[in-house]
C-alpha cells in the first residue's frame, strides 16, 4: 500500500533549490528516477494515474483563490499593459490610435529624437541596485552571524536588528529627509569632506543617488536579516560541533559550513532585493520628489509615475512598465544562471 502512495513524494523540480529559503535542499537531492520504477505493475500505474487526476481537481480548487486574484490583478493587467504600450491613449485611459513601437523606440533613443533621458533612467536604476543589493546582503549576513552569538539578551539585539522591517519606507523617508536636511547639520561633515558645491547630499548630482541607496539599505536591512538568520538557524548544529572537534575555527566554520549551506537563502535574497530595488519609488518620491539633480535619481518607476500619474500618458507609461518588466526578467535570469552553479545541492 505504501508503494502505491509513494508517487506523492515526487522528487524536487529544478526550481526547488533556487526558490527555497529553508532546510530541505540541504538534504541531498536524489536523481528523480526512483519515483516511478519501471517494473511497476499495470494495475498499479492505472491506479496512480486515476489518483493523480483526482488530486488535480482538488489541487485546482485549493489554488483557485490565489489563481483568481493573480488572474485579475497580475496577469490580466500585465497583458493589458503590453497592449496599451502600443497605443496612444486619452485622459480616461482609452486607446485613441495604434502607435506601433514608437514609444519603445523613444525610450531606447532609437527614433533619432536625441532624448537620452529614458535610457539614462534605466542606467540610474541599475546603478541604484548595484549600490543597494550586494552591500545590503553583506551587512545582513554579518548581522545574522553576530546574532547567533551565545550571549544573554541576544533576543533584544535580534529585535533591534529586525526593527527596520517594521518601519515603512515612507516613514523612514520622512526621517532620512531630515537627516539629509542641510539645516539639521547631521550630514554637514560629509558635505564638507566631499567639497560639494551643493548645500546638501540630496541636492548634488554626485551624492543624491548614493544617499537614497544608503537609506534603502537601512530600510531593507530588517527583512534581509530575518531571512538570513532563519537560513543560518536551519543549518544543523551538529555540523558546527563536529567541525569544532576537527579543529575548525570560527572563520573556517563560517566559510565551509554557514556560507555554502546559506547560498540558497542568499540567492533568494538576491532576487528579492534586486526586484525590490527596481520597484523602489517611495524614497524617491519623498526624498527627492522630482527627477533629481541632473536627472541623477530619475529611476524607472519614478519616471513611470511621472508619465502615468502626473501626465496621464497611459500608453507611454505602459511602455516604460514593459521595459521595466523586461529588465527585471533579464536580471532574474542572469542571477539564476550566475548563482546556479554555486548553490549547494549535496
Amino acid at each position: 500500500m505504501s508503494a502505491v502512495d509513494r508517487p506523492d513524494s515526487k522528487s524536487a523540480q529544478p526550481f526547488d533549490a533556487a526558490m527555497s529559503t529553508q532546510t530541505d535542499e540541504v538534504v541531498t537531492i536524489t536523481p528523480s528516477s526512483q519515483t516511478t520504477s519501471p517494473d511497476e505493475t499495470f494495475s498499479n500505474s492505472t491506479y496512480i494515474r486515476r489518483r493523480r487526476w483526482q488530486n488535480f481537481g482538488w489541487a485546482l480548487l485549493y489554488m483557485a483563490p490565489a489563481l483568481i486574484i493573480f488572474a485579475a490583478f497580475t496577469f490580466w493587467p500585465f497583458f493589458q499593459s503590453i497592449y496599451l504600450s502600443f497605443f496612444v491613449t486619452d485622459q480616461a485611459g482609452q486607446t485613441v490610435r495604434f502607435n506601433d513601437v514608437q514609444y519603445y523606440s523613444r525610450i531606447l533613443n532609437l527614433d533619432g529624437s536625441g532624448r537620452t533621458e529614458y535610457l539614462q533612467s534605466i542606467w540610474v536604476t541599475i546603478e541604484f541596485s548595484l549600490m543597494v543589493v550586494p552591500l545590503g546582503i553583506v551587512v545582513s549576513v554579518a548581522l545574522a552571524v553576530l546574532a547567533t552569538a551565545k550571549v544573554k539578551i541576544i533576543g533584544v539585539f535580534r529585535t533591534i536588528f529586525t526593527s527596520s522591517v517594521a518601519i515603512s519606507v515612507a516613514s523612514a523617508s520622512v526621517i532620512w529627509a531630515l537627516i539629509y536636511n542641510p539645516s539639521v547639520k547631521a550630514t554637514q561633515w560629509l558635505v564638507d569632506a566631499l567639497h560639494l558645491k551643493s548645500q546638501g547630499l540630496l541636492l548634488d548630482a554626485s551624492t543624491a543617488l548614493p544617499s537614497v541607496a544608503f537609506m534603502t539599505i537601512w530600510t531593507s536591512l530588517g527583512f534581509n536579516f530575518i531571512i538570513t538568520l532563519s537560513g543560518i538557524q536551519a543549518i544543523p548544529q551538529d555540523l558546527y560541533e563536529s567541525s569544532k572537534i576537527d579543529g575548525a575555527n570560527g572563520w573556517n566554520s563560517f566559510r565551509f559550513i554557514t556560507l555554502p549551506l546559506l547560498t540558497p537563502t542568499l540567492l533568494f535574497l538576491f532576487i528579492i532585493s534586486t526586484i525590490s530595488c527596481f520597484q523602489a519609488f517611495t524614497q524617491f518620491n519623498v526624498l527627492i520628489a522630482n527627477e533629481g539633480p541632473d536627472g541623477s535619481t530619475n529611476v524607472m518607476v519614478y519616471q513611470l509615475f511621472t508619465a502615468f500619474f502626473k501626465d496621464t500618458r497611459y500608453g507611454f507609461a505602459s511602455a516604460i512598465a514593459v521595459v521595466l518588466f523586461l529588465v527585471v526578467l533579464v536580471l532574474t535570469l542572469i542571477q539564476y544562471r550566475l548563482l546556479d552553479r554555486k548553490v549547494h545541492y549535496q
Binding site: 526558490m19 490565489a66 500585465f78 499593459s81 496599451l84 526586484i275 520597484q279 497611459y314 512598465a321 521595466l324
Partner: peptide, 18 residues
C-alpha cells in the same frame, strides 16, 4: 508552479496602470 513563480517576476509597477 511556473504560473505562481511568474507572479514574482512581474513587478507590481508593470500592472499598476490597468
Amino acid at each position: 508552479f511556473v504560473i505562481f513563480l511568474a507572479t514574482l517576476m512581474i513587478p507590481w509597477e508593470a500592472t499598476v496602470i490597468p
